[in-house]
Design a protein around this nucleic acid. Structure first.
Lengths: 196, 196, 196, 196
DNA sequence: AATGAATGAGGATTCATTCAT
DNA sequence: GATGAATGAATCCTCATTCAT
């Protein structure tokens, strides 16, 4: 009598390459949540668990801590770039989007503070690269004679605002961010994610 | 299960109680250096080693992480308070002292960011208490009609400056701190430790 | 501060998930032996070493001391329950099995003394739960009018016998246990593990 | 001008040999309390602290753990011996005193279980010696034809009762001890310390 | 003779990372 | 490709014991 091959229930389904992309996205989301709740030093195992995948999958997609953190920030940075790429966008508009991400993602704030961290230099290098993409996005919209026109003042201001962004809820943080921009005398557009 | 320390066998010097004060100071200094180099999460064992004492001594003097960090910051905070207590001191003078400590001690910066840290709440509470001592020192010198006169603006500004204070050398950090105060339109006196 | 395990360099065998069940059993056996030799406070590291596994494995299988001790006792308790479930079993039969485990496993004796231990309350709670399973097993076979028929006398007697069970070899302990039961005027069947 | 020698207030008074005896007694009492509360594994430092003396003093009087535990038990054992030395004392009287100590001192119970402990052999030896003093005290009062007349039955019964003595309050323990003696069919006199 | 600080070994616990299946 | 067990180094923390004063 022939044996019907029954799917081994002990082994989880292997959905093929389809799953790969899904897993990667799940990991990035999980990391964002875990980072928000426990900070950037959260155990990787917690992220894998939250994503519902094994730890091996995490390593397959992200060879190290830095790669994962980078992927988490990628989305934030990309939205700032997209906001900057909109035709009639003003500096205020782009700052609005940037401010939204600043208040939304603890990791994004960390990005701006990564210089002072005692962490490994590869993290700092990565953070710097992302930070420069943000700067390019903003600088393109600086009107002549703007308060922050001088060479380094723009990112200095961003770092300053990031220093102000603390508080338990996003609303708190947004409130403080706006107060900070006000103290700097800089106008900020609507605070929101890019493609709303 | 009992502990069975090796009976004797060439035990290192025990300088007796005389050493207690010296050890405590050595620990605080070591902690300041290690914090600067590795951040507030540095292993306590590294601090003990740098101080040249056993780990037990560290725990004798500082029952937990918070106590040690507090002791490290205590000196910074105290100097700000002393600067504020000087007779003819102006806000600019006090800000000068505060800025010096901001650029000098990574831990002191951390203090202003401790709110956002995902760390244990007792650390946050302690940080808050120290932070309020700084605020009291500054607020007493706010002239009427000062830019930062509104309720929360003063410490918001301090947080903003602390966000700007990054860079490998103290000179870098001082430079950025002064630029930040300038962007805020606030005058700062000589940047130096208190009793210079 | 992050952990920096040595990258690779001759990592010992990893037999994969297959080993999980084997490891768990090895841990329980090792614990039984170590408990017998050093008592319930023996270092967990000694148990892991004896089992031939890393300490992490011990924590994976047993989140805390209690869980491990519970697993060790589980087998003893279960055999008593099984002996009690046999159709024509008499109290003497069940007591025989119980006595065997009493003389065999130091931990099982400890179970009956766990109340007086100054240990953490979760251990005591767990011990109590196991202890009650034993009681249920015995109580079901109490003939009417038995010497130990009164409410608490049964487990009191068990505690008394456990107090008597001392001595370097199992034979010594069995001898004393039988003498104790005799002093109590209670008949005990063959002293042996359950499924002999 | 002459300097009046002032007593150095930093150094505690040295009361001479008088204090030595007082300190020793304080240590024994402290140990008894701490043992009762935390078990025999309590840190020695806790005992010294409770006694109000430095740790060095503890080591001066008791070279090791065993010596201290022995001293704590000494008083219990001595009272049993004294009760046995009384002219018209009956076995029941002596058992009453012994039972009082059994219910009063966790360490005294431990004494009877010290055989099964995995502890160092010097502890077991010491425990055995004390145990034999108790036995001599009791055996002298065994009437001919007593239930516990056979060679080892007397101390076996004591061990059994000690197994029964558990519970949070002394009253609980006394109650269980009496129930245990009753199960053994042995009469016990008033449960109380010796020279009440 | 007492004090109490210092030492440092040892045990508990956590994670980053690898790898058999 | 995915799973999740195993490894073991690193950190935290506690105490027994010694010893300068």
């Amino acid at each position: 009598m022939m044996q019907h091959p029954v799917p081994d229930e002990r082994r989880p389904a292997n959905d093929g390459p389809k799953a790969a992309a899904r897993n990667r996205a799940a990991l990035v989301n999980a990391a964002r949540e875990i980072y928000a709740a426990y900070g950037l030093d959260a155990p990787l195992s917690a992220i894998a668990r939250r994503a519902g995948v094994g730890q091996g999958v995490l390593y397959r997609h992200f060879p190290d801590r830095v790669a994962l953190a980078g992927a988490v920030l990628e989305e934030n940075v990309r939205q700032v770039e997209q906001a900057a790429a909109v035709d009639n966008a003003t500096l205020a508009d782009v700052l609005g989007v940037m401010t939204w991400h600043l208040t939304e993602s603890a990791a994004f704030i960390g990005l701006l503070h990564a210089h002072e961290s005692g962490g490994p230099s590869d993290i700092r290098a990565h953070a710097l690269a992302l930070s420069e993409r943000v700067e390019r996005g903003l600088r393109g919209h600086l009107p002549d004679g703007h308060r922050l026109g001088a060479a380094n003042d723009l990112m200095l201001a961003v770092a300053m605002v990031s220093g102000a962004v603390t508080g338990p809820t996003r609303a708190d943080r947004e409130c403080r961010a706006l107060a900070a921009w006000r103290l700097l005398g800089v106008e900020v557009g609507p605070v929101r994610p890019f493609d709303s």
